[in-house]
Deep mutational scan, measured.
Amino acid sequence: MEVRTIKVFTTVDNINLHTQVVDMSMTYGQQFGPTYLDGADVTKIKPHNSHEGKTFYVLPNDDTLRVEAFEYYHTTDPSFLGRYMSALNHTKKWKYPQVNGLTSIKWADNNCYLATALLTLQQIELKFNPPALQDAYYRARAGEAANFCALILAYCNKTVGELGDVRETMSYLFQHANLDSCKRVLNVVCKTCGQQQTTLKGVEAVMYMGTLSYEQFKKGVQIPCTCGKQATKYLVQQESPFVMMSAPPAQYELKHGTFTCASEYTGNYQCGHYKHITSKETLYCIDGALLTKSSEYKGPITDVFYKENSYTTTIK
């Protein structure tokens, strides 16, 4: 009895394709271990004539594949690729409408935090270190965002349907971005203890939790000093293409032309909904596939993004 075979390709990165001759009487799992086709788990399936010449994702289970996976995804987590594939199996079914010149995501599976993050990423200057993220990001900007969303979920250790947080998501993504040249110098002034300067680099240099107003941050924000008295913390120097200011959701007025974009969060910790506000020729609110415009805006804002380049204080 002759062994019926077909020729397929296996890959971990969709760049390096490895030619395989597979036995049609055995499952993919018996031949390769966990195997995925377009995100779908085909591990328990036997090869079919229609699979001839198709590319299958496999887990990096030998040295060659491990090197290829690390170079593309910059992670050695053995569960990463499987999590990416199972997320992709959902995100490829989502709709990605162009809204006001940006790629958004039609609401499904509690994905409003991903839509808000995706919209924000198209408006701030950011370059990702893992080629996987950078490639998928370019495709997302062009309207094909399924891979990018699935990668975000995998890097953030999230599953489809789980509630997510924009600030946490951005923080994970910033860790995989090139923020080497970003720098922030802060000064804390206390009447009792004097003053202390701190220099922050990388992710810490672009994120701040405690106030939404970048102007206020430049002037000074009140913080408790270690001595128990009130101290003032203010920005001395900022070198970065953008800054992200966050605070627990509270009524906040966004003035046209003073910011790049913002995240609105309605609801409580267990259950809520994100919308995205962007400042173009007027203010726009993007909620999944829905767009509304207004000249002014007041609502429960939790993150505001500002364009920056270089700032030095005039406070002496």
Rank of each mutant, 00 (worst) to 15 (best):
G202V: 03
S171G: 15
D303Q: 06
Q237N: 15
A247E: 04
E168T: 05
Y73A: 01
K280N: 07
D23F: 12
N187A: 11
T313E: 10
V8M: 09
A117R: 02
D180A: 12
N309D: 13
A40F: 14
V3F: 08
F70P: 06
T169V: 14
D38H: 10
E68I: 04
Q251N: 15
Y84R: 04
A145L: 03
L81V: 14
N309T: 13
N61Y: 15
G210T: 00
M244E: 07
T5I: 13
E162C: 07
K293V: 11
G272E: 06
F259R: 06
K229P: 03
M209Y: 10
G53Y: 11
G257A: 11
S79M: 12
A154Y: 00
N49M: 05
S171W: 14
T302D: 04
T116M: 05
Y306E: 03
A87L: 06
C261W: 02
L212D: 00
G194H: 03
C156D: 00
Y208I: 05
Y274H: 10
Y234W: 10
T75K: 05
L212C: 04
K275D: 03
K54T: 12
L151V: 03
G202M: 04
H276C: 14
H176P: 01
R167T: 07
T169N: 03
V42W: 15
V236K: 11
N100V: 08
Y138W: 01
T76S: 12
R167D: 06
E71C: 07
P131K: 01
L17N: 09
T5S: 14
A142C: 15
N187E: 11
A231Y: 03
T120Y: 04
D63N: 15
Y252A: 11
Q251Y: 11
Y284G: 06
T11K: 02
Y306M: 06
P78H: 08
A140G: 03
Q30I: 14
S279G: 02
V99W: 12
E68L: 14
P241N: 12
Y208L: 06
S86I: 11
A108W: 02
S181Y: 09
T312R: 12
G210V: 03
M85Y: 11
L133N: 01
L17A: 04
L235I: 09
I223L: 10
Y57C: 10
T292Y: 11
P224K: 14
D41T: 15
D287C: 01
Y72C: 13
T266V: 14
P249F: 03
V42C: 14
W107F: 07
R184L: 09
N49K: 10
C227T: 01
Y252N: 05
Q270L: 12
P249I: 03
Y155M: 00
E162H: 05
D63P: 14
M207G: 01
E204Y: 05
L65P: 07
V188D: 06
K44R: 06
C225T: 03
I301E: 04
V67L: 13
V189L: 11
V12N: 11
A250W: 05
L173N: 03
Q238L: 04
L235H: 02
F305R: 05
F148A: 00
T314V: 15
K183L: 10
L65E: 03
L179I: 08
R184Y: 06
T120D: 02
Q98I: 03
N89P: 02
E52M: 11
T292R: 12
R83D: 00
R141D: 00
Q238H: 03
S171D: 09
D77C: 09
C227M: 01
S79L: 11
P78M: 09
I277C: 05
V304P: 05
F305H: 04
G33V: 00
V203N: 09
E308P: 10
T116Q: 14
K158G: 06
L179T: 02
Y284E: 00
K201T: 13
L186Q: 13
V22F: 03
D77K: 03
N147A: 13
T258W: 00
V185C: 05
N61E: 15
R83N: 06
D165H: 07
T55R: 11
N89T: 09
T199E: 15
A262T: 02
K201D: 06
S213N: 11
A142D: 14
G194A: 07
S50D: 15
S295K: 14
M170E: 00
A145M: 02
D303N: 12
C149S: 05
F305G: 04
T302V: 11
K106S: 09
S104M: 00
M244C: 12
K293I: 10
I301K: 04
D13C: 01
T5N: 11
M170D: 01
G33E: 01
D23V: 12
K307V: 13
P224A: 13
V166D: 02
T258A: 15
Y269P: 09
D165I: 15
S213P: 07
Y72W: 08
G161N: 05
L283S: 08
N129C: 12
A142T: 15
V21S: 09
D77F: 01
M244D: 09
P248T: 11
D23S: 13
A145E: 02
S246R: 04
C261E: 15
W94F: 04
T116E: 10
T116K: 00
A145G: 14
Q270F: 10
Q123M: 03
G288L: 01
H273D: 00
